[in-house]
């Protein structure tokens, strides 16, 4: 059984934000929310690195652990998806997530925040695949079409990888063996409780 993961090769990321734009456009994400964003460390100084970041679809996801209404669920290929019909917008998942992935689109009367929105790994949600209802709540479902998340497929420097963990680890290992260095699989220890041995 495949275990779907993201890996950002920070030696290759050039902070172009194409992944961010592709995601927003593919799912028509409203103003004020980014399901993916690029974070730059040591900006303008030696050792500058950029990392493209979204929901990592963690093993034993902390967002699911703290959700009082159990709106998160895991698929057999280990994606962490959520049900917007159950979400009450309490905000616990936002505080629990080590990657700051869940976003709240709006603040309404009495602090009501609608339903949380997060990366779906382009796999939609608990509505029938590729229906208008699924699209309007969760965005497009590329995985049902036999594709991978658009952010990874759009990456011009091939920094952002998505797919089966075993294959992604192999690709990264080959790169490091070829170029002789790497910053490691950022976030893998936190998200997947594993590191990438090279």
């Amino acid at each position: 059984m495949a275990r779907l993961v993201f890996l950002c090769d920070s030696e290759r990321c050039i902070e172009c934000n194409a992944c961010v734009t592709a995601c927003k456009n593919e799912h028509e994400v409203p103003w004020g929310i980014n399901r993916r964003r690029v974070v730059t460390i040591n900006d303008g100084r030696p050792g500058e690195r950029s990392i493209s970041m979204a929901c990592m679809h963690c093993t034993d996801a902390p967002c699911a652990a703290v959700c009082p209404v159990s709106c998160f669920y895991g698929t057999e290929d280990q994606l962490v998806l959520h049900d917007k019909d159950l979400c009450i917008g309490c905000g616990y998942c936002f505080y629990a997530c080590p990657f700051g992935a869940p976003q709240y689109p709006r603040v309404g009367n009495f602090g009501g925040r609608g339903r949380m929105d997060k990366c779906t790994y382009c796999a939609g949600g608990p509505q029938q695949d590729n229906t208008p209802s699924e699209y309007v709540q969760y965005g497009s479902n590329r995985i049902a079409e036999g594709k991978l998340p658009l952010c990874a497929e759009m990456c011009s420097t091939k920094a952002l990888l998505a797919g089966d963990q075993a294959i992604i680890a192999d690709i990264y290992r080959e790169r490091v063996q070829k170029r002789g260095f790497g910053s490691g699989a950022w976030g893998w220890r936190t998200a997947y409780r594993t590191t990438l041995e090279v």
Binding site: M1, T75, D85, D117, Q128, T131, P132, S133, A144
Partner: peptide, 23 residues
């Protein structure tokens, strides 16, 4: 923005369908 479906019909997946492997 608020996670609603509007007038679109609710077409929920069953519990087994939700958790099936998608890849």
């Amino acid at each position: 923005p608020n996670g609603n479906r509007g007038d679109l019909p609710n077409r929920p997946e069953s519990e087994a369908e939700k958790r099936r492997p998608r890849y």
